[in-house]
């Protein structure tokens, strides 16, 4: 089984809110000191899902990244991925989902044969949730989204997912693309051996022109006008009391008033 996983680095989503700041002139986030980028958490789950499939049936896992992201690729290799491909891109806006999907689909076509492509359901920076579906469209393969479980038997792919409707199970044929959601579980932590072995695995680097003419021009149909920090702050009145019992009692009074009891 040839599995390709699309991964990218993002600003650590667990960044304390106080460390989050925006450069108003450049309309971008100021990289916080001392907090390096991490693999997009959903992408880490995608790598995990790929490795689990590789463990069940023999296969090869290749990770792809657009732009910068060697650290994140080394981590994927340390988790157990076999090979990594980086595509150097020019003028690509991180929030341009369609352009990224187009580039990814060309890179995947250049890799050649594959059975399954796995992506995270969305990235924790721009939260688009479109790259997987659009990449599948450009590749002309079926897409199943927000999977919590992936099963492959006899060239057929089944996924389970949880939606507002309930628990859904879908089936399609390979090759296909799947996006994964957090219900999938937790990604493995690379072992010491994994980290050492990762340094021996190859990271292949391609330039945008290596992808040929087929890829659509980087379009930017939706220019970013402004990026600004959310102001969801409220003035919080802390309920005081000489002990928890007293304070909780006061809170009960407050809630009773609010709810008309």
């Amino acid at each position: 089984m040839e599995i390709i996983v699309c991964i990218k680095p993002v600003l650590d989503p667990d960044l304390p809110p106080m460390k989050f700041s925006i450069d108003a002139q450049k309309n971008c986030v100021i990289p916080p000191e001392g907090m390096p980028a991490v693999m997009n958490p959903y992408d880490a789950l995608a790598v995990e899902a790929a490795l689990q499939i590789k463990e069940k049936q023999k296969g090869k896992v290749t990770v792809i990244t657009l732009g910068s992201g060697e650290d994140v690729q080394r981590k994927a290799l340390a988790m157990g991925a076999d090979e990594a491909v980086i595509v150097k891109v020019e003028g690509l806006q991180e929030f341009d989902g369609p352009a990224k999907a187009s580039l990814l689909s060309c890179a995947i076509k250049k890799i050649g044969s594959y059975d399954l492509v796995i992506c995270g359901r969305q990235a924790a920076d721009w939260d688009l949730g479109v790259t997987g579906s659009m990449t599948a469209e450009y590749l002309g393969i079926p897409v199943l989204t927000r999977a919590k479980k992936i099963e492959i038997t006899d060239g057929k792919l089944r996924i389970e997912r949880i939606t507002a409707n309930g628990n859904e199970t879908y089936e399609t044929v390979l090759p296909a693309l799947v996006t994964v959601s957090s219900e999938m579980g937790k990604p493995r932590i690379p072992s010491g051996w994994g980290i050492i072995n990762a340094t021996k695995k190859s990271i292949i680097s391609w330039s945008q022109s290596d992808l040929g003419d087929n890829h659509r021009k980087v379009l930017g149909r939706n220019p970013l006008l402004k990026l600004y920090a959310s102001s969801n702050e409220r003035k919080c009145e802390l309920i005081a009391g000489k002990n928890t019992e007293e304070a909780a009692g006061r809170l009960a009074d407050l809630i009773a008033n609010m709810t008309g009891k």
Partner: peptide, 22 residues
């Protein structure tokens, strides 16, 4: 920072009291 009212307490202590009073 995003609430109107806050109680700094362990919920295991605070909630039973809230429930009883309410």
């Amino acid at each position: 920072r995003v609430s109107d009212f806050g109680l700094v307490a362990d919920y295991k202590d605070a909630l039973p009291i809230l429930v009883e009073k309410l």
